[in-house]
Nucleic acid binder design. Structure first.
Lengths: 337, 337
DNA sequence: CCAATTTGCGGGAATGTTCCCACGAATGGA
DNA sequence: TCCATTCGTGGGAACATTCCCGCAAATTGG
């Protein structure tokens, strides 16, 4: 048991220098004689010196840490986005503190407190489906801590956002279904509280309009993303007098569950009913039948959001308030349609 | 723009007290008059005072942060384990710093440096499939930073470990296959570098032995978990003169991919070939056919590991060196067998 | 050769908190 | 009434580092 972290003072004493000089040598300041710097560097290496970030952060008021708050870890979506974000963050010298809110507002509020306690230099946020009040997030703004939303954004805050073109993705999916001969297309949508649900619904409606397919509100169901409920809604759709011949689901897990329900009813996918998802989760290509879905550049979303955040931290962007990055989606046609 | 974090000195001045007293009042020390404490607490609340953890950590040499290093985020396994770990960590007042090493040794080494720079109080580690040298992890031991392994453990380090009974899980899976009439059971195993592969292989062999089924080394294939290669190996198995009638896969993604390959060959699962996986990933019940698999208490693994780590940090365990928690698995029989 | 600039380094304050020591007042027992 | 204890508080060091200021020596220019 030794436990005396070696400090710059230890190095200074050993070399008969002052801590100031050692500090300068280590941080690469110019005004220090090359030989001196060399000696310091060598001794630091030899003593296995580790700079104490706590002390540095205390002075500089920068922790080189960014926080990431995501609603869940169940699908591969957020883990993938996080990988992307970490990629650019670590390249820029930042570590990440990750919190998941379990789709609960209360947990999200608690998570913001964790971020404040950790004095993060900025936060990446994707809100829960429950979040309707944004006071806890506005605290960051008040404290001057940069914030960037991705995927699940908050429209009433003027901060950068990274999203995909949900409208366009939905439009193209539905358009494709119509062009491949489907006549009655249902949409199992997400909750209205989420902007992405709304946009996908609008894309769905627009595609119908384009082809003069009348919009039947019986075929639009908005639900709370609780996967267990899919069974109820799909069963309901199948029991309609005039049931759909295609279902466009708000995300892949919903689509996968939809397929199961359809099959349990003895119907075939895609022969009787086509199913299309959204997001292209890791597993969507592996299931049977492989799922037709709208693919998002998830990792890229994480990367973009992190880059935006770091630029903001470094004050490299002028009018960041208005920045909204909209990434492109891509329709991946597989066997389920 | 104000940017002067309110400190205990601000509170002290306002109330004509010394910072010492304010500090005592806030930390709940007994020797401070109730009225004084009350006044401090109220003003702190009013000024939205936030204690500066950096300064505290600098003195106490505790950051109340634990690090988690996992090899990947692709399957639902590690995200789930992390949720479990965070659960108990946050309850104990710890925040978590998460790193994923992308199954690469180099990244894992870099991640350990991140942990050291962050002065974590302890680390939870699951190694990559490439990791053969453990020097970077032994640094933690040398510095007196507690470490707990889970899932992918390092046998040559004497630290607590949390694993499932891989041997038993594999044994029961194969035993079940034999008892349901399968005669030639192949095992698509993980790399020998991972202890879990070895144990599952041993369980596989033991089950064969018990039923006097001769072990045919043609039917045991160890691969590097690169999912693209599954196709090669399964095709190879199917092309054997005496092909298997069941395949026990080292994990669920492998099993799922195996099913796809079998079907592309025009064979049926489970009629022609049964397939069993390991881990019971989130999607395994959703695919077609639903996968028979050995389920692990993943979240519980995370919880247990975190608890073990925190106990160790708090010196609440005496002989932690020898602690190895072995959690039980459970065979989940579905339609793929 | 002297003044002016540059070079290299040391001293000390500052960052926000905890913790030890001490000090005065109040309270207690004898 | 006097000494001893307790109570509530203040002062200051410590934690590891940065950064500003200043100072001496060395170098430069005329």
């Amino acid at each position: 048991m030794k436990r005396h972290q070696v400090t710059i003072i230890d190095i200074a004493k050993e070399l008969n220098l002052s801590k100031s000089t050692v500090s300068r040598a280590l941080t690469g300041h110019k005004s220090v004689k090359p030989e001196t710097r060399q000696a310091v560097l060598e001794l630091a290496e030899k003593l296995d010196y580790q700079r104490n970030m706590l002390a540095i952060s205390l002075i500089t008021k920068k922790t080189n840490t960014i926080g990431i708050i995501v609603p869940e870890f169940k699908s591969s979506y957020f883990p993938t986005a996080i990988i992307g974000a970490q990629e650019v963050a670590s390249k820029a010298g930042y570590t990440t503190v990750i919190c998941q809110s379990d789709e609960r507002y209360e947990t999200e509020v608690a998570n913001t407190r964790v971020m404040l306690a950790n004095q993060v230099d900025g936060v990446l946020v994707s809100i829960t489906k429950e979040t309707l009040n944004y006071d806890h997030l506005k605290i960051f703004q008040r404290k001057g801590i940069p914030i960037v939303f991705f995927n699940r954004v908050c429209d009433e805050m003027e901060v950068p956002k990274v999203i995909v073109d949900d409208y366009d993705g939905a439009y193209r999916a539905v358009n494709y279904l119509i062009e491949s001969g489907r006549k009655r297309i249902a949409h199992l949508a997400g909750p209205f509280s989420l902007k992405i649900s709304e946009k996908r619904i609008n894309g769905y409606k627009a595609a119908l309009r384009k082809h003069n397919v009348p919009y039947d509100e019986e075929l639009l169901i908005s639900y709370d993303l609780n996967i267990e409920k899919v069974k109820i809604y799909v069963t309901h759709l199948l029991n309609l007098d005039n049931p759909p011949d295609a279902i466009f689901a708000v995300n892949d897990p919903t689509a996968i569950e939809t397929i199961q329900v359809i099959r349990k009813r003895g119907l075939r996918v895609p022969e009787d009913i086509a199913v299309v998802g959204f997001s292209n989760d890791f597993v969507s290509g592996l299931i049977d039948p492989p799922l037709t879905t709208v693919s998002q550049p998830v990792r890229e979303i994480g990367r973009t959001a992190a880059q935006l955040l770091i630029d903001q931290i470094n004050r490299e962007v002028a009018d960041w308030k208005t920045i909204i990055k909209v990434l492109k989606t891509e329709l991946v046609v597989r066997k389920s349609s």
